[in-house]
Structures are given as structure tokens and as C-alpha cells.
């Protein structure tokens, strides 16, 4: 079985690298955007200020995370191979599987820290805004400012980012960073329109096209499933079990990609 201690050791080094490479500076950008928006929207006022901050905050958490996941994810393995730092590393008692899993865990840790700090900042800004309004003004809001239900959307964003990272890592075990980035972004975009494939058979007559659409619907990562931002912002009900099934779906997909990455990587020759 995989050695967890070794994996953790590799992961912490990845985290250290991202800190030294100033990746976490994006948190500053996030804070500036959020506070700037809060100030500007406060000037405009329309009663929907808290909704806008929530929309913006959740979208920014997802977008910053996506950029980190893709741009670091594609370099995780490729950089080590290209610069040959992997040669001395793999001569140590470190299996290639542990190497891959450690690299993944390290970026996952970086992303998690990022999301946690951003979420805390979002709640801070929302708390500040909450204090600016009277109870009567608040009555028109769809959800309270400090709604804990928003954390469900954050949780799914985390799973989505972990899935993006696994995709980027998988591609980077065998292709160049440019291609990996293009493929990862491509899958991300297509995955957001995945739901449109579901009912495709209702509108096409050819059974081949319908079958193809159905196969793609099941095989492509369904990123749209992780997006419940509008539901939580409007405090709409979410089907019971939705969260659990979606998280399980994400984790199964991640496991598949990591298995694939390990399979590809353990078979590679480093010329």
C-alpha cells in the first residue's frame, strides 16, 4: 500500500514551493476585489448589495482556485521531469505512485488553504455589511448575510477544484504544459455544458447521435453539477442527497484520474 507518511512529506514540499513562489499573493488580490466591490456597491445601493457580494465572492473563490489548479497543476510533474530534478528524487525510496499522490496532495493542500482564507474573508465582508442595515431593510433579502448554507456552495467549489487539479495532473504526466492547460480548460468549459447533453435525445432523431450524446454525458466530467452558487445565494432548496451524491461523484472521478496518472507515470521512461 502507498506510504502515507512519504506522500505527506512530498505534499508539504509542494505547499512550500507554492508559498515560496508567492502563489498565495492571490489572496491579496481577492481581498482587494471584495472590499473594493463592497465599497462601490455600498455607494450605489439597491437593496441587493449582499446578494451581489455573495455572487462576486463565490465566483472569485472559484476563479482564483481554477487558475491556481490549472497553472500549478500542469507544471507539477512536467517541471520535475523537464528540469531533471526527478532523477535524484526517484533514486530515493520513493515510489512513482507516492510521488504522484504526494504532488496531488500538495496542490490540494494549497487550494484548500486558499479557499479557507477566501471564505473567511468573504464572511468578514458580509458581516460588516450585515451591520450596515436595519432589520427592516434586511427583510427583502433572499437569505441572511451570514448564511451558513453558503458553505455548501464552497464545499462543492473545493471538490470542483480538486477535480480540475486531477485533470491537469493527469495530462501533465504525458503532455506539454501548453497542451495540458488547453485540454484542462477545454474539459472545464465543456463540463459546464454537460447538462445540455442529457436531454439531447429528445431533440435529435438519429439514434447514433443520441447514443453519442448520452455517452459523452456520462464520460465527460459534469462540472455544472458542482455549481450551486445561485441556489445558495437565493436560499433555494437543494434536493436531499444532492450534496452527498455530487461529492461522491467528484471523488470517484478524482480517483479515476489519479489511477490513470499513476498508471501512465509508472510506465514512463525518462530519456
Amino acid at each position: 500500500m502507498a506510504d502515507m507518511r512519504i506522500i505527506a512529506h512530498v505534499a508539504i514540499n509542494v505547499f512550500k514551493e507554492s508559498v515560496r513562489d508567492k502563489v498565495l499573493y492571490n489572496l491579496v488580490a481577492f481581498a482587494v476585489i471584495l472590499m473594493g466591490a463592497a465599497y462601490l456597491i455600498g455607494q450605489l445601493t439597491a437593496g441587493q448589495d449582499v446578494k451581489i457580494i455573495k455572487d462576486l465572492g463565490l465566483a472569485a473563490i472559484g476563479t482564483f482556485g481554477l487558475l491556481i489548479a490549472v497553472f500549478i497543476g500542469i507544471g507539477l510533474v512536467w517541471k520535475e521531469v523537464e528540469r531533471r530534478s526527478i532523477y535524484s528524487l526517484l533514486s530515493k525510496p520513493l515510489g512513482r505512485r507516492e510521488f504522484i499522490l504526494g504532488k496531488y496532495a500538495g496542490l490540494a493542500l494549497t487550494l484548500l488553504v486558499n479557499v479557507v482564507v477566501m471564505t473567511a474573508a468573504l464572511y468578514l465582508v458580509l458581516g460588516y455589511m450585515d451591520a450596515q442595515f436595519t432589520e427592516e431593510q434586511k427583510s427583502v433579502w433572499a437569505a441572511p448575510a451570514l448564511d451558513a448554507g453558503m458553505l455548501r456552495a464552497v464545499a462543492l467549489i473545493v471538490v470542483e477544484l480538486l477535480l480540475v487539479t486531477a485533470i491537469a495532473l493527469f495530462f501533465s504526466t504525458f503532455s506539454s504544459p501548453f497542451l495540458s492547460a488547453a485540454l484542462t480548460f477545454g474539459l472545464w468549459v465543456i463540463g459546464h455544458f454537460n447538462a445540455d447533453l442529457r436531454n439531447f435525445e429528445n431533440i435529435v432523431e438519429s439514434p447514433v447521435a443520441a447514443g453519442l450524446a448520452r455517452a459523452l454525458y456520462y464520460l465527460l466530467p459534469n462540472f455544472a453539477a458542482f455549481d450551486i452558487k445561485s441556489q445558495v445565494v437565493y436560499a433555494l432548496p437543494i434536493a436531499p442527497g444532492y450534496l452527498a451524491v455530487t461529492v461522491a461523484y467528484g471523488l470517484a472521478y478524482i480517483a479515476l484520474l489519479l489511477t490513470g496518472s499513476v498508471l501512465v507515470f509508472t510506465r514512463r521512461d525518462f530519456k
Binding site: 514540499n13 512550500k16 531533471r84
Partner: peptide, 8 residues
């Protein structure tokens, strides 16, 4: 011609 992590 070894190379190691230059951030360490």
C-alpha cells in the same frame, strides 16, 4: 548535470 528545486 543535476538540478534541484531552486526555491529551497
Amino acid at each position: 548535470n543535476p538540478y534541484f528545486y531552486d526555491y529551497l
